[in-house]
Amino acid sequence: MKSEIKEAIKKLKKEKDAVILAHNYQIEDIQDIADFVGDSYDLSKKAASSQADVIVFCGVYFMAETASILSPQKIVILPEKTAGCPLADTIEAEDVREIRTRHPEAAVVCYVNSSAAVKAECDACCTSSNAVKVVNSLPHKEVIFVPDKNLANYVSLNTIKEIIPWKGCCNTHHRVTIEDLWKVRELYPDTPILVHPECRPEVVEEADFVGGTTAIMNFVKKSCHEKFIIGTEMGMLYPLQKQNPDKEFFLLSQKLICPNMKKISLEQVYHSLKNLEPQIKVPPGIAEKALKAVNKMLEVS
């Protein structure tokens, strides 16, 4: 049954000249049928450079929006329209305008986990892998960083600039506490703990390595360790294991599961590809402005 639907998706994909992009946090079946699996930065680059007419984005809403911003002429499909990002929802365009009036000298950098409307209000966009680079590339001394306060803290540790954080955070990563880390460390004192910068500051400070999913992947590949404790969304264990069959991976905490990332099923991909919906389209006025912020990021990194 599963293999049949996979075959059908493959066939449809050719018919519609579509490319399937899947985030590292997607369920295993979705990762298996995707043309590219990666973090939001890799996928946004793939979306920009793809020759296909249709992009099926297996991720959450803001990612599909970003793909549409980068390729306005293409059809961008998000197989499950309600797959949102609670972090992105912590801030609206109006909030950015308001915080700007309080810090008129500061630049605004938004994490890619934000709506197109928010991106349109910002000077530059970034992902966890290039946040520091982007912030350092701006001439401003002060930088308002939205919406993730934990990533803002991570950036502030790596730059001389004054970072003004927004109050949002990723519920999934924020659930992991320092006590969780201590417990694991006591059980496995010699196993490196690798965490995402969306984790709480104290977790980030005490982990052995901090980085986005691509950085974690690179660390694992190069490392001589055989076992790793992974502090990011559980979906990441799959690509890690796939690319490093000789190594072992453990999840830092069972709390590391993002329900939004698990919403898309093979059936939904099949149907959305067949009907070419639901499509995600960013209004041209907003898309143009947001594109500037996204391009600023692509330029820097």
């Binding site: 520091v132 991570y154 540790l157 790596n158 400070e205 005490e206 982990a207 052995d208």
Partner: peptide, 12 residues
């Protein structure tokens, strides 16, 4: 290298 890594090593 990144200041964050330097920070972590010192903290440890």
């Amino acid at each position: 290298d990144s200041p964050m890594e330097h920070f972590k090593d010192t903290l440890r």
